[in-house]
Design a protein around this nucleic acid. Structure first.
Lengths: 194, 194
DNA sequence: ACCTGAACACCGTTCAAGT
DNA sequence: ACCTGAACACCGTTCAAGT
């Protein structure tokens, strides 16, 4: 029983993650206003009282939601894409795939969070920082692919806007853009000087 | 009794105005979150049910609050200042007096509304439009006073910022700036080319 | 460590009924 | 025209008590 010490942490935090996961789903489906403690508890089959063991209050849950999304949709993606290949072109392809094709079982909160930012200046600021970070990453990949810096800046912006647009479209019920379109676009973006 | 027809409208809308006035006070003292239907009703000595005769819902009250403030603190002021004198310099003095010395019985919601704008992009947009309108008015007065347009733009901006700063200071408990300081400032601002 | 149950506080909204 | 009273719905938060 002394040996268990090392693996103790997981079960303790499982509850917290379950709340976050459930909140994510609701956030994606109903937006920020749907994320309330009582309905969430009902959804999870527990009492709302239990919520307060994991979080100080509702605001703490919303904060965790944002944190979780930043990690999953930005930090992790960058690490995974970097590890996926050594070729910048291949990395860009992988990045586009990871950020535009929905991951089964993981709700896409991107659009809901942008809407949230519209109503909450703090969230807006945080979003802006994340946007800069992502755009910069794309820019560096383009430069790695042979595009010169000044061109890369514009293309990174364009590429990033396209991805945001795709999320918005899909959130509004549009059909996902085909892989062929993405490939074609990437080809354009990686064209070097001559 | 037929003669009364003309004066009928006032009593009918008195109720509505009372709600707005009460809401204004609370807004100035406690900020947006203090403006709730139930406490407001208690304050007015009526049931909260009666609120819904005058307003569709809480949002409608907040809207009316903004509208009321825009009228009182911008539209009316411009009309009154224009009527106060023919001299641009005198008008500027009057404008500064009207916008910085608190009117007894009328709570200063300016600062609270700016804080509200921080949390609500719609309010923010509306505020920005009002700011432009006010600044433009000051600019035109300066030009009327002999300052050339390009200088006037900068000075109007500066003057307006000073007024906003004054409201913020006073809202935070600072002592009002003296009339002498305002006079001195205005003198500077009205200095012409040579 | 994690959850239940019950209670409390606090509001927004509706509506039939009064005057 | 304006307001009362009562009810309903819906939540956030706390906390002693359980396991």
């Amino acid at each position: 029983m002394e040996a268990k010490k090392k693996t103790r942490k997981a079960p303790a935090s499982l509850g917290r993650e379950a709340w976050i996961a459930a909140a994510c789903e609701v956030l994606a489906r109903e937006g920020l206003d749907g994320v309330r403690v009582e309905p969430l508890a009902a959804k999870l089959g527990v009492t709302k009282g239990s919520f307060y063991w994991h979080f100080r209050d509702r605001a703490a849950l919303l904060d965790a939601l944002l944190e979780d999304w930043e990690m999953r949709a930005t930090s992790s993606v960058i690490v995974l894409v970097d590890a996926s290949s050594d070729s910048p072109a291949a990395r860009l392809t992988e990045l586009l795939r990871r950020t535009t094709s929905p991951v089964p079982g993981v709700p896409d909160v991107e659009h809901a969070i942008r809407a949230w930012g519209t109503r909450d200046p703090d969230v807006m600021r945080r979003l802006a920082a994340i946007d800069r970070r992502r755009e910069r990453y794309v820019e560096d990949l383009l430069v790695g692919g042979g595009v010169d810096r000044s061109k890369a800046k514009h293309r990174a912006r364009a590429l990033y806007l396209v991805v945001i647009g795709e999320h918005t479209r899909v959130a509004h019920g549009g059909r996902p853009t085909s892989a062929a379109t993405w490939a074609e676009l990437l080809g354009q973006m990686l064209k070097t000087g001559r």
